[in-house]
Structures are given as C-alpha cells and as structure tokens.
C-alpha cells in the first residue's frame, strides 16, 4: 500500500500545471468574464451589478448585430463551400491520378500560413485600383467590376473567399483520409453490382463519411466563431463596419473603447453559441451509446 501511495503523489504533482491552468486560466477567467458582464464596468471592473442591462444594450448595438449577421453569413458560406470543395478535391485525388502528392501539397499549403498572410494576400489581389479588377480592365473590358472588398454589402463575401482558400485544404485532407479508410472491397462489391461511381459516392460513401463531415463542420465552426485576424488583415472590419465580426467587436470594446461590461457580455454570448455547437458533438464523439459505434 505504501509505495503505491507515494507514486500517486508524484502523478498529482505532475498535474499541478494543468490543474492551475484549468482552474485559474479557464474556469476562473470564464466565470470572471461572465460576472463582469452583469455589472456596469467601463474602463475597470466594478462590482455594481445591473442585471442583464449590458445584454440589452449589446443587442441594441447595431455594430454587434452586424457582427453576428456577418458571422452567420461567413459561417454558412465557409462551411458549405469548404465541405463541397474539400470533398470534391479529396474524391478527385482518390481516383488514382498522376501527381497526387503535388496536388495535395498545393491544396493544403495555405492552411500552413497565418490568417494575417492570407488576408493581406487577398487584400492585395482584390485591390480595386491595382488588383484583378484593374487587370481585367486593362485587357479591354473597361467596365469590369470586382470591387467587393470596398462594397458594404459584399465585403464579407471576400472574407469567405479568403477563408475558403485557407481552410478547404484542411477539409480535403480530412476527407481524403476518410476515403482512404474505406474498405477497397466495398468498391469492388459496388462494381460487381454495377453501381455507377457517382451513386456509390452519394449513397454509400457520403453516409459513411458522416463522422469526418461532422468533425470538419465542428472545426470550421470553431474557426468561424474565432475569426479575427483574417478580418483584421483583409478588410479591417470595413468598409465602415460592414465586415465586423464578434471576436473583433469584443476586442475593440475591451481595449479600444474601454467598455468591458459590454465586451464581456458579448463574450458570454459567444460562449453560449460555442456551447450550443459543441455540446451535441462532444456527446456524439465521447459519450454516445456503444451500439452506434459498432460495426467498424
């Protein structure tokens, strides 16, 4: 009994850093943030509780509403396009093609780079006076218009383009490893049955890839909620506030505008959104009944 106890002490000692981080950096800060959001804190935290007034104020702030709308548009656009493009690329790479490695490397390299680099690259390409628009005009189509980056109602779509450029390789990589995991005999069986390739993909492969698809959606959703650097580098939230996103809203109010009450209320809203996204998924991944997991 004695030696065992001593060993266990060592394992608790080893977990001290993780414990401190979890308790102070995660749980403590999270609770503190939520707590501040119920006070009238401005530049510094105060203990003057005012109920949900900050939340009312938050949802009366058009900039916040625009941020949320943009997040939804960006999220839907990014996830849909990445899933479709990523799956098509993975399926194409799975056809015993030549230069498979080269193509895979090309599709994935943007994912290695930062959002800042991605944003700045696309900002330059889409530059209305010197970028693609001007190039096409120089070719003779003098009325050609592609200046979304400076259009109030289009700027967020530019963010989607840049986001897709950066992240669809990730989906491709996940999907490709999913496709490679499919039993080759299944393809043979389908061939014997005379099932056309596209039907195999649609009726057999896609349903089998559900876990991969869900993982991709969760990963992309988290990127959507967190999107900050990309917008900073690409549009700066502009023109005006037309491409604002929640993460940027929060940081602006925390540090630029020193309204931490409002900012923490916004943070808490984000927190709830993320919990709504990931709770079902965590349940599915870690706690779903064994029966559904079987058959692999």
């Amino acid at each position: 009994m004695k030696p065992r106890r001593r060993k266990n002490v060592a394992s608790y000692v080893a977990l001290i850093p993780a414990f401190i981080i979890v308790v102070f950096a995660y749980l403590g800060t999270m609770l503190w943030t939520v707590q501040i959001s119920f006070t009238d804190s401005k530049l510094l935290p105060s203990m003057n509780f005012i109920g949900i007034r900050q939340y009312e104020r938050l949802f009366a702030t058009s900039r916040w509403i625009i941020s949320l709308e943009n997040m939804v548009i960006f999220g839907i656009g990014l996830i849909l396009v990445c899933l479709v493009l990523g799956f098509l690329m993975a399926a194409a790479l799975d056809q015993k093609i030549r230069f498979e490695n080269t193509f895979r490397t090309i599709f994935l390299y943007p994912y290695a780079m930062s959002f800042i680099v991605t944003g700045l690259a696309w900002q330059w390409i889409l530059n209305p006076t010197l970028g693609v628009q001007q190039y096409v005009r120089n070719l003779g189509w003098t009325n050609f218009q592609f200046d979304w980056i400076v259009q109030n109602d289009r700027a967020i779509y530019v963010v989607i383009i840049a986001g897709v450029w950066q992240a669809s390789g990730l989906v491709m990589a996940l999907m490709l490893s999913g496709l490679r995991g499919i039993d080759q005999e299944l393809w043979k069986a389908a061939q014997i049955d005379g099932i056309p390739a596209w039907r195999v993909y649609l009726n057999i492969v896609v349903p089998m890839m559900r876990p991969t698809i869900i993982t991709s959606v969760v990963l992309l959703s988290l990127a959507v909620v967190r999107v900050y650097d990309l917008v900073i580098a690409l549009t700066g939230g502009g023109p005006g506030i037309s491409s604002e996103v929640p993460a940027k809203f929060i940081l602006d109010y925390l540090f630029g505008r020193s309204n931490i009450g409002l900012a923490t209320a916004a943070s808490s809203v984000l927190l709830v959104i993320v919990l709504v996204i990931i709770t079902p998924w965590l349940y599915y991944e870690y706690f779903r009944p064994e029966r559904a997991k079987g058959g692999k």
């Binding site: 299944l186 043979k188 069986a189 014997i192 057999i204 349903p207």
Partner: peptide, 29 residues
C-alpha cells in the same frame, strides 16, 4: 464490365453497404 459478366462475388470483409439495411444491400444493385 464486372456487372455484365454474370457473376456474383462474396468478400472476406463482407463489404456490405454500411448505411443501408439488409434489404437495401440486397436490392441496391
């Protein structure tokens, strides 16, 4: 083509279509 050869084949890994019922597996082809 395999489907035109008048053959049926059974595999070691069964190779059943995972998300279909038994009826679906039998009738899909």
């Amino acid at each position: 083509e395999p489907k035109d050869r008048g053959i049926g084949m059974v595999f070691q890994s069964y190779a059943l279509y995972p998300r279909m019922t038994v009826t679906g597996n039998l009738s899909f082809g």
